[in-house]
Amino acid sequence: MSADYFAFFELPRSLALDLKDLEKRFYKLSRQWHPDLFARKSPAEQEQALEATAVLNDGYRVLRDPIARALYVLKQEGFDVGEQGTKDVPPELLEEVFELNMALEELRMGDTDALPQLAAARTRFEAMRAALDADLGTKFAAWDAVHTPGTLTEIRALLNRRKYITNLIDKASNVPDRI
């Protein structure tokens, strides 16, 4: 259960990964461990193949997604990556969030005039997230170069903020079909 995904993929613990290379490793390890290739082996070997493939697949899922990968690295480095911080509105977003909620409320009351406002809000949040992702990319590279714990603290803050913005984007996109 506590297998190290990076070790399994024979990779150093890092935040930025070459996805093509990761895929190649995933296929190679699949050819080594997939249960289909152990059908004629002993039950113990089959069990081992099943366990190894589960780790492989779970690991691939985490490592190929930069956000899941970053959270995983934080956890491995002893950081707490719980839900805290995501409920509180970041102060600089207070006004935006207030307007979004107003627009959603109007929409719920049947006022379709709020629709363009929602679309605009969504575009703004998406731009924010894109900027944030660029920022994260820089920080990832920085940590990969020199493993400074301070960088990880900054990354954790960025990830929390990113999660908050993603929730806002979902909210702005999840407009009911029937109005």
């Binding site: 099943l50 589960a54 779970d58 691939y60 899922r61």
Partner: peptide, 9 residues
Amino acid sequence: NSTIPASAG
């Protein structure tokens, strides 16, 4: 759409 075998603890 998770590749199987897949696990969670």
